[in-house]
Amino acid sequence: MALFFAMLLVSISASAQDTPAVEMATGLYQSGKIYVVVTVISVIFIGIVTYLVMLDRKISKLEKEIKK
């Protein structure tokens, strides 16, 4: 009987150590729609970078004109 309880205890503590599955956005990855999110954010970032490049050029032009 004591052995039975000891085994029960061990099995309970073992199952308690199994961490419950953490919910992740598995569906978004399986359907492939995560690529839409990545594309949108990439477009926004490239847009901002293009803006920075244009600003950079404008300032370079001003610097050249002032030097003249």
Binding site: M24, V37, V38, I41, S42, F45
Partner: peptide, 15 residues
């Protein structure tokens, strides 16, 4: 930064 946007969303992360 562009690499981190792509890899940051697509690479595996620990649950």
């Amino acid at each position: 930064v562009l690499y981190t946007i792509i890899a940051g969303f697509l690479f595996n992360v620990p649950a």
